[in-house]
Write a protein that binds this DNA or RNA. Structure first.
Lengths: 245, 245
DNA sequence: CCGGCATGCGTACAGTGTTCGCATCGAAGG
DNA sequence: CCTTCGATGCGAACACTGTACGCATGCCGG
């Protein structure tokens, strides 16, 4: 409390805090915001992301984010394109190897969808209308793959396999989210859900067997993998019939 | 203002309003709430539904709804099951006609998904884990259909075609929602989006053609129908290979 | 007649996305 | 060197949201 300084012009504690903070972080940038948003979404799910919490994690106020991002929806759009960069699509050297290549591209999509389960929620609300660069190159590579494979209507083939992959991945991700929200492990969650499911299935003869599968409890991950591969094989078989010659 | 009545026990305006209101509506009931919620969702989209607005439309306060519904999530669950009642699955008389029957069941799902675009948002967040009675009978009938068709693994076949249908319908519904939110007709929305899309596709040789399809503007509905039928045919062809004999 | 119980609702709380205007800062220009 | 200026951060505020609590009121069985 030195009485001689000019108190109004430069209040000491403020200056103190400022000089430490500014060189600390690389300030606020669009890229950093999106990166941290993805991290929060992955960690705590979609409903845990709020502008205030995100700002707090970046040592910033909530409203500061709006200097770099127009709206929260735009931020989600950027987040989607951010994770879209993870999906790898192999280039096709041998035309006969298209099945393996498409399988890899599909599995890659599913893998990122399961790594970032919030993606399904966003896709359900906004679809694939996004035009982010990473999504564009993903589409481009898919198109290149299917044309190289020799499909007469590549876009039709792409839509078909993408629809299957999105549908399956979305369903899986939603289930995993539900399980995660319960705080329990998947096996115990299933066990706790079992009685309700069996009661709901009462009177439906064809459904009775669906909820007594022990594999769902012993190794649900492997069961999901197998289910995905089965359906994908079906789709690819159907597509193969449309290859000329 | 008659001074002789007992004013505290029966204040006039209150009695007036009450006697009119009580026989007016069948009061508040779970069924009425769900019905009105679906109506609001259909009319104004998912983000327009709030407990307060829903209460207002039922001549009720917002918190009154909680006497009949535990939480908003539960209300959405009920709404999903409500619209699930619309989907019809034909019974299979002749085993050879399974293709037409499955096609009808798939088209029915898609039709309700497009009639209630908010469904896609909910599915993206919660999946098919719901156990409502209507969803159960839908599953049951699907199972009956695929078993009657002679599939060795009916549940695998169901998961495959359902994944495709969900993926395609979700994508379509999300697109329609985006268009609707713009307030424009689909054709003008596409026209307005075109330059951005073409700029985003710049440098991607295989994508250049995707955004110059005139059919998307002249008759987008027919184009979507055809796209859906194409993919479904692919999936059914793949499944047919797995039928014994 | 009366006591209990289901139903409706007003108030309140914690939290949300977003707007606005002010403070501060680094750089550019006289 | 001083000053202006544009960019950036931020505190306060607004209109909402879902929901918990407690009070009032009506109907129904004893």
């Amino acid at each position: 409390m030195p009485p001689k300084a000019k108190p109004a012009a430069t209040p000491l504690p403020s200056v103190w805090a400022r000089e430490q903070r500014t060189p600390d972080q690389p300030a606020l940038s669009r890229a950093a915001i999106v990166r941290e948003a993805v991290a929060m979404l992955d960690a705590d799910g979609i409903e845990a992301l709020s502008m205030r919490k995100l700002g707090a994690r970046l040592n910033a106020g909530a409203t500061s984010l709006y200097r770099h991002v127009a709206t929260k929806d735009e931020l989600m759009e950027l987040a989607v394109d951010e994770v879209a960069a993870e999906i790898r699509v192999p280039e096709l050297q041998d035309g006969a190897a298209w099945r393996a290549a498409v399988t890899e591209a599909a599995a890659g999509f599913r893998a990122t969808a399961l790594r970032h389960p919030w993606l399904s929620s966003v896709l359900g609300q906004a679809g694939l209308a996004y035009l982010g660069p990473n999504l564009m190159t993903y589409s481009e590579r898919l198109a290149a793959l299917f044309t190289a494979a020799g499909f007469p209507e590549p876009s039709r083939a792409i839509d078909t396999v993408l629809s299957y992959v999105i549908g399956m991945s979305t369903t899986e991700a939603a289930w995993l989210t539900t399980v995660a929200r319960s705080g329990e492990t998947e096996a115990t969650f299933i066990a706790r859900l079992m009685p309700a499911a069996q009661q709901a299935a009462a009177g439906h003869e064809h459904l009775a067997g669906s909820y007594t599968d022990a594999a769902a409890i012993t190794d649900p991950v492997a069961l999901r993998d197998e289910k995905f591969r089965y359906g994908l094989a079906v789709v690819l078989d159907g597509l193969a019939l449309r290859l000329p010659k």
